[in-house]
Computed example of a mutant assay.
Amino acid sequence: MTIRVLVVDDSSFFRRRLSEILQQDPLLEVIDTAANGKEAIDKAKSLRPDVITMDIEMPVMDGITAVREIMKTTPTPVLMFSSLTHDGARATLEALDAGAMDFLPKRFEDIARSKEEAISQLQQRVRAIARRRPRAAVSRTTPVSSTVAPRTPVSSRFSREPVAAPAASAPPERRSLPRRSGKSYQLLAIGTSTGGPVALQAVLTKLPANFPHPVVLVQHMPGTFTTAFAARLDGLCQIRVKEAEDGDMLRPGHAYLAPGGRQMMLEGRPGAARLRILDGNDKVNYKPCVDITFASAANIYGGKVLAVVLTGMGADGRDGSRLLKEQGASIWAQDEETCVVYGMPQAVAKAGIATESLPLPLIGEAIVNEMVG
């Protein structure tokens, strides 16, 4: 059965170009196009597509407003297209809050090293999100927990393919908090990709301001996006969140987001560890790469790490998680049901590395229970 796609963009050239690319995949069928958000809402109701691709800036009605309305009336997986600018990043994050599942840059060459690879990634993203149920939009005013109130942002504190079903070896899915292990920790490390911005927000907003450990975050994301994303998280979370800079000292209750397009590594010793931000090897598929950050964490902190692999396409994080587990670290994975794409967590679970498979709404609370008590 083909996946029916509605393409929404005010540029007739982009609509035609995107439609041609999608139609090259025998599993994808472009059933219609729309030139603005109002048309998108009407055609979503009448045509009931499986996926909608959506531009952000359009006349009559912008893409963010259209996504909000579509999620109210005819919930449909939405893939946003964005410019790689600071304003484009902020708008894209608003669209994800509104209910969009994923995003890609409008310049396809920015997502891959060749035209063929870019086309393949685009088609793969559309196929992947078509299989997921749309989620409710994230409310910016909803309390993050029953005991922690949203913190007022303080900007001056910092400068600036669908996967198979889970294998039998995967840990069982849970609907209750795992029993506290009693282990001693010194670091929380989280890696994610497709669907990660919303997942990270859900997890990090559950951590209290007095969280006793530093947090390192790796999200596959362009460089212009990580700056805006870190600032957004910092305004929503009780802990401090910043885009990592070379030389940053790891401090308790602070989270450091790896900058897009570069690699983040840890060096030093527990209690006096710092970050190195490097350009890295062009042969590495991901910049930033979860495996690289996790591996460096294993060298510094050994088994005193809780590593969490959230939603994402591919298998980044599996090898780094294996190195951590060999040192005695705890590895958790997001469960299939709550992932936008069950790729990275499945890779960890299928390899027998993850000790827990948890639904997204429980992960933040489970981290606090395990690491804070």
Rank of each mutant, 00 (worst) to 15 (best):
244 A>M: 11
313 M>W: 10
291 D>G: 02
24 Q>F: 10
54 M>N: 07
69 E>D: 06
261 G>A: 10
179 R>H: 01
136 A>G: 15
164 A>E: 13
174 R>F: 02
232 R>K: 15
238 Q>M: 07
341 V>M: 06
105 P>Y: 02
259 P>M: 09
91 A>N: 15
290 V>S: 04
28 L>E: 06
166 P>H: 12
353 I>H: 03
249 M>C: 04
4 R>W: 06
205 T>P: 02
17 R>A: 08
215 V>F: 03
134 P>Y: 11
8 V>A: 15
195 G>P: 08
345 P>W: 09
233 L>V: 08
371 M>Q: 13
322 R>T: 07
57 E>Q: 14
133 R>S: 15
108 F>G: 07
330 S>H: 01
182 G>V: 03
309 V>A: 03
269 R>P: 00
221 M>Q: 11
127 R>F: 07
15 R>F: 01
153 P>R: 15
40 A>S: 04
373 G>N: 15
40 A>W: 00
342 Y>S: 04
373 G>F: 14
206 K>T: 07
29 E>D: 12
357 S>C: 13
296 S>W: 07
16 R>N: 12
356 E>G: 00
97 D>V: 08
36 N>I: 00
48 R>T: 05
124 Q>H: 05
130 A>T: 12
67 V>C: 15
121 Q>W: 07
95 A>S: 13
173 E>G: 04
330 S>F: 06
79 L>M: 15
173 E>F: 00
53 T>K: 06
158 F>I: 01
221 M>K: 08
263 Q>K: 04
212 P>Q: 07
3 I>W: 13
228 A>Y: 07
303 G>M: 05
276 R>E: 02
92 T>E: 11
206 K>N: 13
126 V>K: 09
275 L>Q: 01
318 R>H: 00
66 A>Y: 05
86 H>G: 02
211 F>C: 05
229 F>R: 02
194 T>S: 09
22 L>I: 10
300 I>Y: 00
171 P>G: 09
211 F>N: 02
140 R>V: 13
80 M>A: 10
241 V>G: 04
169 S>I: 11
130 A>M: 12
313 M>S: 08
40 A>F: 00
61 M>H: 06
200 L>C: 04
37 G>L: 01
351 A>I: 07
213 H>Y: 13
26 P>E: 10
29 E>P: 00
169 S>E: 12
144 V>L: 15
140 R>I: 12
180 R>P: 05
214 P>E: 05
112 A>S: 06
198 V>D: 11
272 A>R: 14
24 Q>S: 03
352 G>R: 07
13 F>N: 12
150 P>I: 01
163 V>L: 15
96 L>F: 08
151 R>M: 14
219 Q>V: 01
61 M>N: 04
19 S>P: 07
358 L>I: 14
6 L>N: 10
124 Q>I: 09
6 L>C: 12
338 T>W: 09
113 R>N: 09
269 R>G: 01
46 S>I: 01
225 F>P: 12
82 S>L: 14
136 A>V: 14
